[in-house]
Amino acid sequence: MSTHESTVRNRKWVTPVTALAIGLGYLVAGLLGDNLEFGVFGLVLMVAVGGAFWLVRTRSETVAGLLDRRDERINAIDASASLFAGMTTLAVVLGAFMVEIARGQDGMPYAALGAVAGVAYVAALVWGRLRR
């Protein structure tokens, strides 16, 4: 087995394992917050999402591409979709921040979320500029 094949095989597990890790995080949060129902639901939901990705991969080239990351077109579509989701989230955060300020509040936690987004953008810009 080549190194490339091994890498592709390992990549296929990233999304299901990440979904499982998030589910376990929900479970721990639910246990700590004395909300077992939320924790169990969150774990079951994320296991279902990860499992669905894993099962559908044999029937959908798009899902398979999202899992193994080999197809440049799927990767480009994924990057565009991620950018759209990120910009949408940022717009909502900025809007919510303005609403909170208009209501006489301190703008938290939206101010902090917006600041994280701004710092992350600048860091990514610098990183990308250094690498290319």
Partner: peptide, 21 residues
């Protein structure tokens, strides 16, 4: 090393491949 959908998209002109591809 790509999906069948990508070949289809290239052939129909909907997707412009990278230089390596």
């Amino acid at each position: 090393g790509v999906s069948r959908q990508t070949i289809n998209s290239i052939e129909s002109g909907r997707y412009l491949p990278s230089l390596p591809l």
